[in-house]
Amino acid sequence: MNEHASPEPTSWMIYGAYGYTGELIAREAVKRGLRPVLAGRSRAKVEPLARELGLAMQIFGLDDAAQLATELQGQALVLHCAGPFSATAAPMMQACLEARAHYLDITGEIAVFEQAQALNLRAREAGVVICPGVGFDVIPTDCVAAALKAALPDATYLALGFDSRSSFSPGTAKTSVEGLAQGGKVRRDGKIVSVPLAYQVRRIDFGAGEKLAMTIPWGDVSTAYHTTGIANIEVFIPGSAGMVRGARLANLVRPLLGLAWVQKWLKARISKTVVGPDDTKRADQGTFVWGEARNARGERKVARLHTANVYSLTITGALAVVEHLLQARPSAGAYTPAKLLGAELVTRLPGSGTLRIE
């Protein structure tokens, strides 16, 4: 293991490599013969993993912009896995632009996707790709959106959703806590608008029978628009009547949920009590993905797909995009996953079935 070893011609980095998902990606990368540099702010956490996997490491935080860009020199790309992305994505994107390194991450946060799109011109000028959301958030739903757009080119409304039985990792749980404080989000007439939690409720067959479902502020509210141009977008997950009531009651206390001390307390509790699913659970926890497109004439197309567990798909999806960028030379700019690799990306990932459109 060499800290700050001379980078290989296709050297790339996993930042946040010791988090739940970052470590899983690092281990799978090594199994594939890839040699990422492992990085993060904690030497005590990065060093044991780098030593075990025989990989180079770098230790740095995200607070010093000048240092950050220097740390990325020589890297072809950075796969950013250190949340909360609401705080960490912007400085890493800026550093990647300065270092002329491609930027990937595994976020599902709407604000991060919008930040990325706003950097499209700068990414083109720097000759790099910026593509957040290369995990379960948002590869499957983004590919479904692209497929539905192809099937119904004049669609004016798009609904997406998924039914997953997967438990949360600590990072995902913390992001969810932030999301509760921010309320719901949908896209109306091309613009992202704030709405109450559980704003829309309907019954949906995600692939395992019809279930009650409610809207959530998922990343596709941003990304699906940039993938398809469809101006009205909502995202749903299944929820019992009790869950819907709880979400709507949460609207009453949202100002409290946004207080810094409340967020700090909730996240501390998550750090102590939440662990991500192990290998056995991931193997048993597949996901149903669904989408519906409608046009002004009332014509309707529905898409369904079954994928691997959300974290298993994040591992293989992120590495599929990494390998693509290491081997190919796409035009520079800001991308969504389906824009970068096409609607068929998800069906090429292990555990994915056929994407069916009815």
Rank of each mutant, 00 (worst) to 15 (best):
D284T: 14
R282T: 12
P217T: 04
K149T: 02
P330F: 00
E234W: 08
R356A: 12
L148G: 08
L349G: 07
I110A: 01
P140H: 09
S331H: 08
Y20A: 07
R51C: 05
K267L: 10
A50L: 06
V275H: 15
F288R: 13
G333Y: 03
G108A: 04
I315C: 12
T314R: 01
P350H: 09
E210V: 12
K31V: 11
P36L: 00
T314N: 03
A17W: 01
G351I: 08
I230P: 03
L256I: 14
Q115L: 14
P36F: 01
G171T: 13
E323K: 13
A5G: 15
A247P: 10
L326C: 10
N251R: 06
L256Y: 11
L266D: 06
G342N: 05
S42H: 15
A69Y: 05
H306W: 05
L249A: 15
A147F: 02
V201K: 10
S194M: 03
R348I: 02
V310R: 00
A111F: 01
A101K: 01
A303C: 06
L104K: 02
G54C: 09
R269D: 11
G54P: 12
W218H: 06
L266M: 14
G342A: 04
E210R: 09
R187P: 12
E234F: 02
P48K: 04
S222W: 04
R187W: 05
G127D: 04
T215S: 10
Q200K: 13
T223G: 08
Y225H: 14
L38S: 08
G242V: 09
K211M: 12
A123Y: 04
P36R: 03
P238I: 08
G161D: 04
A101Y: 01
L121G: 03
Y335Q: 07
G108S: 01
A268C: 07
L79F: 10
R35D: 02
W290H: 02
A66P: 01
L257N: 08
L160H: 03
A26G: 10
R348D: 10
G108V: 03
D142N: 09
R254G: 13
R329K: 14
V30P: 13
I192E: 01
